[in-house]
Simulated assay, not measured.
Amino acid sequence: MNTTLEIQNLKCGGCANTIVTRLNELTEISDVKVDNASNSVSFNHSTEAELETVTSLLTKLGYPVAGDKNALTTKAKSFVSCAVGRMGK
């Protein structure tokens, strides 16, 4: 099934690169796309457990799902993820 999640702290192509790279490392996740204009990420998965894995990883990277807690430490993680994504381009 295809899912699109609105996420927080998405700022640029560096952020998008980190998200795509890290989600593509999950063998059960495919067709990852990030849309900076709508602050969203879409992907294919088969189970609810895989969806939970993705949302957990996004939060760990600093991009929690819209409506979830977005603490200062989470925002800081997004800046680090963004920088890593820019270097990985």
Rank of each mutant, 00 (worst) to 15 (best):
M1W: 01
N2D: 05
T4L: 00
T4S: 04
L5Q: 07
E6G: 02
I7N: 06
I7D: 07
Q8L: 14
Q8Y: 07
N9F: 07
N9Y: 02
N9S: 08
K11T: 09
G13I: 05
G14A: 01
G14N: 00
C15P: 07
C15E: 01
A16W: 01
A16F: 05
A16Y: 03
N17I: 07
N17K: 08
T18H: 05
I19Q: 01
V20C: 00
T21H: 13
T21W: 01
L23V: 02
L23M: 03
N24W: 02
T27P: 15
E28G: 03
E28D: 13
I29V: 14
S30W: 11
S30L: 04
S30H: 09
D31F: 01
D31T: 09
V32A: 04
V34N: 03
N36W: 06
N36H: 11
N36S: 09
N36D: 14
N36C: 14
S38T: 15
S38R: 15
N39T: 08
N39G: 14
N39S: 15
S40P: 02
V41M: 01
V41C: 04
F43A: 11
F43W: 01
N44I: 11
N44G: 14
H45W: 09
H45R: 13
S46P: 00
E48Y: 10
A49D: 14
A49L: 11
A49T: 14
A49Y: 08
E50K: 13
E50M: 07
V54S: 04
T55K: 15
T55D: 03
S56P: 01
L57I: 08
T59Q: 13
T59E: 12
G62L: 12
Y63W: 03
Y63D: 06
P64T: 11
V65W: 06
V65Y: 03
A66C: 11
D68Y: 04
K69L: 12
N70I: 11
N70F: 09
A71L: 12
T73Q: 10
T73P: 00
T74G: 07
A76N: 13
S78F: 03
S78D: 03
S78P: 04
F79K: 12
F79G: 03
F79Y: 08
S81M: 06
A83W: 04
A83Y: 00
A83G: 15
A83I: 02
G85P: 00
R86A: 06
M87H: 05
M87N: 06
G88M: 12
G88F: 06
